[in-house]
C-alpha cells in the first residue's frame, strides 16, 4: 500500500475516533438546556438569570467537545 495513503487513512480514522468525545459534550448540553427550560417553565420571571447560567453551562460542556475537536484538528492539520 502507498505510504502516503496509509498516513491519510490513519489520520482520517484517528480524527474520526477523536470526535467520539464530542458526544459527551452533546449529552451535557442536552441535560443542561433541558434543566434550564424546565426551570424557565416553572419560574418565567427568572428567565434572564437562568438563560445566562445556561449559556455558561453550555459553554463549559461544549468545551469538552472542543477538546475532542482540537485533538482531531491536530491529527488532521498538524501531524505530518
Amino acid at each position: 500500500m502507498d505510504p502516503q495513503a496509509t498516513i491519510v487513512l490513519g489520520k482520517a480514522i484517528g480524527a474520526g475516533l477523536a470526535m467520539i468525545g464530542a458526544a459527551g459534550g452533546g449529552i451535557g448540553i442536552g441535560i443542561s438546556v433541558g434543566g434550564a427550560v424546565m426551570a424557565m417553565g416553572r419560574n418565567p420571571d427568572h428567565t434572564a438569570t437562568i438563560q445566562t447560567n445556561m449559556i455558561l453551562g453550555v459553554a463549559f460542556a461544549e468545551a469538552v467537545a472542543i477538546y475532542a475537536l482540537v485533538v482531531s484538528l491536530i491529527i488532521l492539520f498538524v501531524l505530518s
Binding site: A63, I66, Y67, V70, L73
Partner: peptide, 16 residues
C-alpha cells in the same frame, strides 16, 4: 491548556 485550547478549538473550528 484548558483555557488556550478551548478558545483555539472553538475559533479554529469556526473558521474551518
Amino acid at each position: 491548556l484548558s483555557f488556550s485550547f478551548r478558545l483555539l478549538g472553538a475559533m479554529f473550528a469556526g473558521a474551518i
